[in-house]
Design a protein around this nucleic acid. Sequence first.
RNA 1: GGGGCGUUCGUCUAGGGGUCAGGACAUCUGUUUUUCAGACAGAGAACACCGGUUCGAAUCCGGUACGCCCUGCCA
Length: 467
Amino acid sequence: MTRQVVTRFAPSPTGDLHIGGARTALFNWLYARGRGGKFLLRIEDTDRERYTPAAAAAILTGLTWLGLDWDGEAVSQFEQRARHAAVAHEMLTRGTAYKCFSTQEEIAAFRAAKEAEGASYAVFLSPWRDADPASYPDAPYVIRMKAPRSGETIIEDQVQGRVVIRNDTLDDMIVLRSDGTPTYMLAVVVDDHDMGVTHVIRGDDHLNNAARQQMVYNAMGWGVPVWAHIPLIHGPDGKKLSKRHGATAVGEYQLQGYPAAGMRNYLARLGWSHGDDEFFTSAQAMAWFDLSGIGRAPARLDFKKLENICGQHIAAADDAALLHELQAYLAASGQPALSDAQRDRMSRGLYCVKERAKTFPELLDKAHFLLISRPVLPDDAAAKSLDPVSRGILRDLTPRLQTAQWTKDALEVILNDVAAAHGIGFGKLAAPLRAALAGRTVTPSVYDMMLVIGQDETISRIRDAAA
RNA sequence: GGGGCGUUCGUCUAGGGGUCAGGACAUCUGUUUUUCAGACAGAGAACACCGGUUCGAAUCCGGUACGCCCUGCCA
């Protein structure tokens, strides 16, 4: 019988949700959700000096915006510290860990001595590893894992393959500090075990750590989870992602108006592939996602591709859902909400603007003609199309429009007639009409605009411009 | 220093002994005898390097270079 899949995302709350972390969360989410499993969240907040509640909240906000829902309550690693300490002491009684009374000065001296012998670096070998408890001083101590000194530790990684690490390159890592608090290496293992995590999918910066952690599983006699270490994301220049590359926090993407579905699609495709599929829904991604599709090389962020994918998602979105997300964007970015009238027009006109927008700001810009109210103020370029001759043509147009049937076919006949009557091509008529209707030179089709804003508004706007 | 991982068009990637090395984004060039925007069509563009195994290597092996990660009483 196969166990239910349980994955987790375990960020440390040191700031906003990082784009790389977001992708790690996405992979875990996709893997669990695609298999009817559970996706858990744990905040690695054991470092109290760096912990801030605001940072922890920012991570939840980021995940929520991305649409990555987790099962149950987010677990606080810090709150499990008593359990961690208990496990460290159990390792002591099992003989898989020992008390080490070496001070940091002694450790530094040990290394200095080794370096003097020629080694530029040496793993610390504690003199207390096999010491008689009777010789223990009454002094602070740490608990170190009694790691195997020879042989090798093998990580069967679903992404990296079989990774072999010689045990003599690893030291007896500390599992419990002298103040009684657990270290990360102990805490992750205990928490993952306690939470029933079956698959650990995380950044490959943890690949080496996996060997140490596997030793803890073994020391406690626990089953080892399935490992999958995914490569990190780099900036467009191939260097490690940093503030210098612009947006690194998912919150920034939200503020820039990228749709969440597009973000998920783009992020999923970064480092993972399903043949040549580029554009897909989250439901498809869940069905397709598998560890075997993850690559081993780090990927770079490509904003052009992100935009392209987002544009496809906006174009394919259901109008009502799109309008809803657009309003959420407005609220999140601190912009004024849509009035009832604007929302009404938007829902009628979305069809002719959504195919040309890659982000929400762009969508808003393309929808300018249906957001504004009279009088329409033409921008400089549009004003040039409204010369005296063109205004005369627009004046000839209005009577025809007043008696027109408000359908595309009927309007097409009228516009062509008027253009012909003035001996000009359709384009020459469309330009001033566009300027009158939208005050812009770049707009949806003039027919769509007339249909969406309606007969009265169309005629009024033309009259305003022709006056 | 030691250890681990990586390297296919500019970018994301497919491909895992025999392929004209495929797709997507981006770029360039065309087309669009009624619309700015765009849409469409086409083109250029890659197996890091050096050896080895093999009839045959982008694919397997070794090395080099470069990059990243780990090497904390951080996570």
